[in-house]
């Protein structure tokens, strides 16, 4: 008689845990009134990572889409910088935009790497954050159909 074995999905790996912070000051309780508009975002360490954004190689890209990607890349390079991350891998994301150039949804295309690799996850998280933070993007309304959905290759560099 054979035994039936049913498989379970894989969980993500544990990421490296940073060393604990020393004693920190109190925080405001969340029952308090809304916080005052926060100061500019504070990077975690000395900043030195920028992102280069390009269409995914091999995917056919209309010229309107190509120039949209270039505009997005330029904008993100100006607006976002991340903490030093020398081993951060390139990531593939699909960016879906609203007509006003704001982000509708960002999809991680390489789900296997995302769930299996802590470095990939961290890089994808940073790239997602950069796209949200630097949007809305100034893109020509007439070409919306071609830049509505953009598969992107995002490569960190220093």
């Amino acid at each position: 008689m054979s035994l039936l074995s049913l498989t379970l999905g894989a969980c993500g790996h544990a990421s490296t845990v940073p060393s604990p912070a020393t004693k920190s000051a109190t925080t405001a309780p969340s029952a308090a009134p809304p916080p005052a508009a926060p100061a500019k975002p504070v990077p975690l360490k000395k900043v030195s990572t920028r992102l280069n954004i390009a269409p995914i190689e091999g995917a056919p890209v209309a010229s309107d889409a190509r120039s949209a990607v270039a505009a997005i890349s330029k904008r993100v390079a100006e607006c976002w910088q991340g903490p030093e991350s020398p081993d951060a891998p390139p990531v593939s994301l699909q960016l879906s935009l609203n007509q006003d150039g704001s982000v509708r949804i960002i999809t991680v295309l390489d789900k296997k790497s995302f769930s299996g690799n802590a470095g990939y996850r961290a890089a994808a998280t940073a790239a997602t954050s950069a796209l949200f933070e630097c949007s809305p993007f100034a893109l020509p309304a007439a070409g919306y159909a071609s830049w509505k959905t953009l598969p992107l290759r995002i490569t960190p560099h220093h």
């Binding site: 544990a14 920190s24 100061a39 504070v42 975690l44 991340g82 802590a118 961290a122």
Partner: peptide, 25 residues
């Protein structure tokens, strides 16, 4: 200069990872 990041872990504290990068509240 409080840095806040979303994090997730197993209920016993293992498999800890961050979900956001700390750039924003």
């Amino acid at each position: 200069k409080r840095i806040k990041r979303l994090a997730i872990m197993d209920q016993d504290g293992e498999n800890h990872r961050f979900l956001t990068d700390g750039g924003n509240l």
